[in-house]
């Protein structure tokens, strides 16, 4: 399959090439090399990743690299967990004794591999699919977090801030793929009302922000021996995905899902078939078509903007004055009123 590499997108191989200049490379200041091959800066627009599923061999190197790169961020819960009320509904979630689990997303496993065995157009396919946060363009997890503990960064990463997360799990509910995973016994709720509100901290892929900040590739991209992933400005990644899909007569996931995501998959088989074939359930995301969860935000914001203007107009057109006079006549001279 022909591979295109737009100037600013970077795959592992492209990245390594910059550093494999032999002895001469040793003489070139590292900053000069890095300047050429660094991951594009946020000013280049939101960064997106492209997964070419025709390349993935399911070796699991990305899963291991992810765990190694992010181990320092994993929770170390205090035990025993505080009793929570009501006990039948507020149950602790503890993955700290099951840190090795790799077949689903957990607070200690932010990337998993799904396998799909499908027959398409008379051909058998075994497709391996790295799954993690989709890093939506308009993420409902971040936009609806009541504590501001989740935000989308300008470089397209949707990141959770464990210091302020209460672990209520709203983000997991509103995420179309239910990606974030909870660990109890850590976080802010322990210092507030641990019996009554909160239940830990939510965790998910943060696209190795600490590496990206230094211009390095995320661990899963860096380690991949098959160059499954490419990272770059979204507009370039989208163009690349469309071109790749045309070449392989394949299919794209992530262009429109939830209003567009910064994780885009290209597959040689339809995603409907992949969705049927993969193991789904808790911590195991689906591949359904997903509408834009935040589609109404623009209309709602417009209503909130127009409302005070309409109110002021109504006031100037005499709405309040008329009503004021009505009360003024009947209750003139009386003072005080009753409001909340």
């Amino acid at each position: 399959m022909k591979k295109r590499k737009p100037e600013t997108t970077v795959s592992r191989r492209g990245f390594l090439k910059a550093f494999s200049m032999g002895g001469a490379g040793m003489l070139i200041p590292s900053a000069a090399i890095a300047a050429q091959e660094r991951v594009p800066a946020p000013s280049d627009g939101e960064l997106a990743t492209l997964h070419d599923l025709s390349k993935c061999i399911g070796c699991g190197e990305c899963v291991s690299a992810c765990r190694e790169s992010n181990a320092v961020k994993y929770p170390e819960p205090k035990k025993p967990f505080p009793e929570m009320l009501p006990s039948r509904r507020a149950k602790p979630e503890d993955w700290s004794e099951k840190r090795d689990v790799e077949d689903r997303l957990t607070p200690y496993n932010w990337l998993m591999l799904q396998t799909a065995e499908v027959t398409y157009r008379g051909e058998d396919h075994e497709i391996f699919i790295p799954r993690r946060c989709m890093h939506c363009q308009n993420p409902p997890c971040a936009n609806t977090c009541p504590f501001g503990a989740a935000s989308k960064q300008k470089n397209g990463i949707t990141r959770f801030y464990d210091t302020f997360c209460m672990g209520g799990g709203k983000c997991r509910t509103v995420c179309p793929w239910h990606i974030p995973q909870r660990q109890s016994g850590v976080g802010l709720y322990l210092n507030l009302m641990p019996r009554l509100a909160g239940n830990g901290v939510m965790y998910k892929c943060d696209r190795c922000y600490q590496r990206l900040d230094k211009g390095e590739l995320p661990a899963c991209i860096s380690i991949c021996p098959e160059d499954v992933q490419t990272i770059g400005p979204r507009y370039e990644i989208v163009a690349q995905a469309k071109s790749l899909a045309r070449e392989m007569n394949g299919f794209i996931y992530g262009l429109e899902e939830n209003g567009g995501t910064n994780t885009i998959y290209v597959s040689p088989v339809p995603f409907e078939l992949l969705n049927k074939a993969v193991d789904k359930g808790k911590g195991k995301p689906h591949f359904k078509r997903v509408g834009d969860a935040m589609a109404d935000e623009g209309n709602l914001a417009a209503a909130a903007l127009v409302a005070p203007i309409a109110g002021i107009a109504a006031g100037f057109l005499g709405l309040g004055a008329k009503l004021f006079k009505t009360d003024d006549k009947s209750q003139s001279g009386k003072e005080d009123s009753h409001e909340s």
Binding site: A307, G311, A313, A314, G315
Partner: peptide, 12 residues
Amino acid sequence: LLLFVIGVVVAN
């Protein structure tokens, strides 16, 4: 709704 009421009150 609240903003509408606030608008009416401010104007008046």
